[in-house]
Amino acid sequence: MSEEQIKSLEEQFEARIARDEKIEPKDWMPEKYRKTHIRQMSQHAHSEIVGMLPEGNWITRAPSLRRKVALLAKVQDEAGHGLYLYSATETLGISREEMYEQLHTGKAKYSSIFNYPTITWADMGAIGWLVDGAAIINQVPLCNTSYGPYARAMIRVCKEESFHQRQGYEIMIKLANGTPEQKEMAQDALNRWWWPSLMMLGPTDAESIHTEQSMKWKLKRKSNDDLRQQFIDQTVPQAELIGLTIPDTDLKWNEERGSYDFGEIDWDEFWQVVKGHGPMNKERMKARVNAWENGEWVRDAAMAHASKKQQRKEKQAV
């Protein structure tokens, strides 16, 4: 194809997206669109899969059967969300094995929030309330994104996600109204998860390199800073309601803006964790790679069983 032809195809393509038309897997698309979507969607899938690890840590130690079934269902949902997203990404021409390879070799990233440890039961509350809360704010606009399979996967994800946040907040309510030790545990979890949750919404707009293109392709509807403000404004009253304190001395209601002013985020910490120096980066990848490698004989056995069954069927048919 000549350069001119490609340019005209690109213009038509951008115009389709501007008209809110969806792009489907077999449609022509610019290479950059394909690559950007593979990167974002696979990282989204990896985040769901790695996100199971910090919570899986507490399933056997949940304090009651009610909490245990809820946490188990939440972690199972995350596996499901990872699978929706992996199969949606495969429609762009990358194989599942390639994506796993990229995750396991560190070539592909996942959400940095999962590189923090879950050291008390209250962390299950804080993760559901804050981490899933921030994830929902990030994800809801994606239900309208331009790539059809991604948008459809996100609609399913968002429908299922709201129970995750509610079960987390319920854990926090219970602890905040419990013994002084339990309340302290809830406050400690909030102290540790607050800032990383704010970082989840991405670098400040000034530092965000993909924003402009992503807005055009509807991979993004609002800027990182706007999403972060939305998260803070919705979460602060929820903390107050259960008597917990947001660990930010600069946090103050701004009457004029109708929003909360908040303190400076430690972006050095953010970039350290992104680059692999968070408290749990190595641990998470080790657990993930072990799970994959130790499962190899099971995957092989399933294939051997399937081909034997097939052969038996063919023999009977003769």
Partner: peptide, 18 residues
């Protein structure tokens, strides 16, 4: 949507779970 499975029985079971 779609999924990976070794054979049709496993595909049905995985589809139910996913």
């Amino acid at each position: 949507g779609s999924l990976h499975a070794a054979d049709e029985d496993m595909a049905l079971e995985n589809a139910r779970d996913v």
